[in-house]
């Protein structure tokens, strides 16, 4: 289907356009900035979203997991807790959010949209109450361990550390979703939950893992974010929510069968980031840039859903 390549075509087109239209787009500095400053965090968060949507659900509480992880991590560092412990604490905090979701969705059978919406609201209260209404926690430069700077801005063999994390997470998620037994069960769950149940799959257990894994990557994103900005800023994770959903659904157009997939999601994230960056460079201000990316997402959706609709009517 031609619509399958709408996403790639859009990506190539905007890349080519901005390379020609600006002198600054196609420079190593700018490309690295896109990847490290914009792509990395959204990509990690979107991986968790991809898994949730593949399982037929959705996770509106990604921001909560990011924030809680960041809150615990930064508080621990500020209290001079050893770095590995602080990281573990952050990850545990994120997992707690996932476990709460898992309990609601797999245990109480609340629909994912509403369950994670509830989590999001409760998470907002928790953060406001523990920061006297949203006071950020800043880490003073001299008092943070050096590894902090490395996580935030360091490189290994010239590759930014954040990108290594993205690459690792993406590889793991791609393997999970595309190759593993668990991934296949998740696909079945997303395609037709009744069939999964009647085929003897342990639906609750798999569902719980979906939300746990999702919150784990969000926690990783939260820790990366904290290292980059050297602070915990309450309620900052929500900024990733809608873009993560958008990128995941853009990514489904890349799959031959229209399912969420890791490669497509990453392409979707990249498209959103390149457009945002490129529009800025050709002199559109931040405001028009928002409009531009909105319209672009819309166009990709039109192309892919238009194709999907035509397919389904032909089949009927």
């Amino acid at each position: 289907m031609s619509s399958r390549y709408a996403l790639v075509a859009a990506l190539v087109a905007v890349f080519a356009f901005f390379s020609v239209a600006t002198t600054t787009f196609l420079t190593p500095g700018n490309l690295e900035s896109i990847l490290v400053n914009n792509f990395a965090l959204l990509a990690i968060v979107s991986l968790g979203m991809t898994l949730a949507i593949a399982a037929g659900g959705i996770d509106l509480s990604v921001g909560t997991a990011i924030d809680i992880a960041s809150l615990i991590f930064v508080s621990a560092v500020a209290a001079h807790v050893a770095m590995p412990l602080a990281v573990l604490g952050g990850l545990a905090g994120g997992l707690l959010v996932g476990a709460f979701n898992a309990g609601l969705i797999a245990g109480l059978r609340i629909t994912p949209f509403l369950a994670t919406l509830g989590t999001l609201f409760i998470g907002q209260s928790v953060q406001q109450l523990s920061t006297s209404g949203g006071q950020p926690i800043y880490l003073i430069t001299g008092h943070v361990p050096p590894v902090f700077a490395f996580i935030g801005h360091g490189t290994v063999l010239g590759i930014p550390f954040a990108m290594i994390v993205v690459g690792g997470c993406a590889a793991i998620f791609a393997t999970i979703l595309g190759r593993s037994l668990f991934g296949r069960r998740v696909e079945a769950l997303g395609a037709q939950p009744g069939v999964a149940w009647y085929s003897g799959l342990r639906v609750s257990r798999d569902t719980a893992w979906v939300y746990l894994l999702g919150s784990l990557v969000c926690a990783i994103a939260g820790i990366l974010l904290s290292c980059t900005v050297r602070a915990y800023v309450p309620l900052s994770g929500n900024a990733y929510l809608l873009n993560a959903i958008g990128a995941t659904f853009l990514g489904t157009t890349f799959s031959r069968v229209g399912r969420p997939n890791v490669a497509g999601t990453l392409l979707g994230v990249l498209l959103l980031n390149i457009v945002a960056n490129g529009l800025l460079l050709i002199g559109w201000n931040f405001y028009w840039q928002q409009v531009g990316s909105g319209v672009l997402i819309f166009l990709v959706l039109v192309v892919s859903f238009g194709g999907g609709r035509a397919r389904s009517t032909r089949a009927a």
């Binding site: 393997t175 190759r179 593993s180 037994l181 668990f182 296949r184 069960r185 696909e187 079945a188 395609a191 037709q192 009744g194 069939v195 999964a196 149940w197 009647y198 085929s199 003897g200 799959l201 069968v257």
Partner: peptide
Amino acid sequence: GHGVALSLSVRENTTIASLDRFARGPLIDR
């Protein structure tokens, strides 16, 4: 509703209840 998932392929539907048979560690021996 309970027998086959219409959007999945014949392959995926056929092996959904017996994935363990095709396990190579946590992965599927395709």
